[in-house]
Amino acid sequence: MIHFKNVSKAYGDHQVLKDIDVSINKGEITVILGPSGCGKSTLLKLINKTILPDEGDIYLNKQNIRDIQDTTLKRSIGYAIQGVGLFPHMSVKENISTVPKLLKWDKRTIDNRVQALMEMMELPETFSKKYPIHLSGGEAQRVGVARALAGNPEILLMDEPFGALDPITRGKLQRKLLNIQKKLHKTIVFVTHDVSEALLLADELILMKDQSILKKDHPYKIVTEAKALLKTFTGGSFAFELLEKFRISDIVDQLTGLQDFDGYCLHEDISLKEVVSEMILQGKSQLTVRNNHQYYRLDFYSLMDLAKRKHYE
């Protein structure tokens, strides 16, 4: 859906992007992973014309974005940044309504849209009159995402949006994003330098380093086939991030239930990563879990397989 063709960008002497050629699929979360200064944010900013390329072209649905008017383009693409950038002099409701107002929607439609988005982002109704100064980091970013989605854009660009949040809030928001994507199927381009986040969120993963793209593939493929490369980006415990994507309830349909069971079992619907954690704590390679009044046995060695199969469904 979004195609980069021979794109280069430099600031003075400093080359930021060298001859980039890449495509981004529609309806998926594409994560661009790379260390600071590799050019990933620049790549993102080229999509909504915040920055213009020195050489090359960028196509959106086969149309060269050079031929699309700036404001039209920007109003059809959502943008969420780390600092959120909520307008301090506007309430939460007014902030979210910004793009719909620019698109001149009528009042009723806008009000309904705001309400729907706030529900989706789990923001209580009392928040609508609150001002950004009264919001916590997590709450602010939720509003930011709602605001970015308000105009119902096809594309959502996110530049390290959860980077400034504490780990728990970050986790919640990451899961929230995955959740809403299940319903919305937007084309999301997500930039981060955090490998765990990348592996958790990505349907397609792009590795960037030194102003160029090193690899683009499904995260599972990269983990299994390009381990060495991935290791240069991170410590190496990335298997856990993949396991975090799924919960017990996601994989039970691949398992056979036990007739009956007596004894210790896990009955919360935790992620597979937490299952491994339990196994380590208990010193067992097999655990019994309960889901929907059925018992199942989980085996340590088959967990990754189950996750992979679920992913490729």
Binding site: T71, K74, I77, I81, G85
Partner: peptide, 11 residues
């Protein structure tokens, strides 16, 4: 950040 958001929204 406020200005960046505003511009990116197509203002």
């Amino acid at each position: 950040d406020v200005i960046i958001s505003a511009e990116a929204m197509g203002m």
